[in-house]
Computed example of a mutant assay.
Amino acid sequence: MANSVQSKKRARQNEKRNDINTARRSRIRTFIRKVEEAIASGDKDAAAAALKAAQPELMRGVTKGVFHKNTASRKLSRLAARVKALA
């Protein structure tokens, strides 16, 4: 248990950041799921639009420290390849 004032404040900050990061990660996963659902339905236009919406969201997650840069790049690359293969 946190005893000092500083450690109590740290605990509060960590809890707050954890909530924010959890929400951000969930939001990004939702964007990715929308792309995958559009790919599964075979609708190339919808998949391309969903990918275009997901890309900045994923990269924002990188700048905020929720995902590693290579992880986001890998996910985008694989999604883009799947969208491209729908043609």
Rank of each mutant, 00 (worst) to 15 (best):
G42D: 09
R24N: 08
G42A: 08
K8Q: 14
A80S: 15
M59L: 15
G42R: 08
T22I: 01
A72K: 11
Q13C: 05
S77W: 07
Q55W: 00
T63G: 06
N14L: 03
A54E: 03
K16N: 02
Q13W: 05
I32A: 05
A11V: 10
A50F: 02
N70Q: 05
S73H: 02
S4E: 11
R29G: 02
V62K: 11
K64L: 09
R12E: 11
G61T: 09
E36N: 09
K44I: 10
V35M: 10
A72L: 13
R10K: 15
N21D: 11
A48W: 01
A46Y: 00
L86E: 13
M1N: 14
V66G: 04
G61Q: 06
H68F: 10
K34E: 13
G65H: 07
Q55G: 01
V35H: 11
S7P: 07
E37R: 12
A2S: 13
R24G: 09
R60F: 11
N14T: 01
R25L: 02
L76W: 05
L86Q: 12
S26Y: 05
S4D: 06
A40M: 09
L51E: 02
N70K: 13
L58N: 12
E15P: 01
N70W: 05
A54C: 07
A40R: 15
V62M: 09
R25H: 09
Q13P: 00
R12Y: 04
F31L: 13
E57I: 03
K84N: 10
A87H: 10
F31M: 13
A53M: 08
A11F: 06
A72I: 08
T30Y: 10
Q55L: 01
K44R: 12
R25Y: 01
S4M: 08
A72P: 02
A54G: 09
V83K: 13
S41M: 06
R10T: 05
A2C: 11
K9W: 14
A81V: 13
A23T: 14
I32R: 09
D19A: 14
Q13M: 11
A48M: 03
G42Y: 03
A87E: 15
V62H: 11
V66K: 11
Q6M: 06
R78C: 00
R33M: 07
I20D: 00
R74Y: 02
I32L: 04
K9M: 13
A38I: 02
R25K: 06
A47I: 13
R12I: 10
A50L: 11
A54H: 06
N14R: 06
A23S: 08
K84A: 14
K9F: 01
N3T: 08
K8D: 00
G42H: 05
N18K: 06
R25A: 10
I28P: 05
S26M: 08
S73A: 07
N21T: 00
A40V: 06
G61V: 07
T22E: 02
D45K: 14
V83N: 14
A81P: 06
R24M: 15
E15N: 01
L76Q: 15
L79I: 13
L58G: 13
R17K: 12
Q55N: 05
K9R: 15
L51M: 03
I32M: 12
A87Y: 12
A40G: 01
K16I: 07
K8I: 02
P56H: 02
T22H: 10
L79V: 13
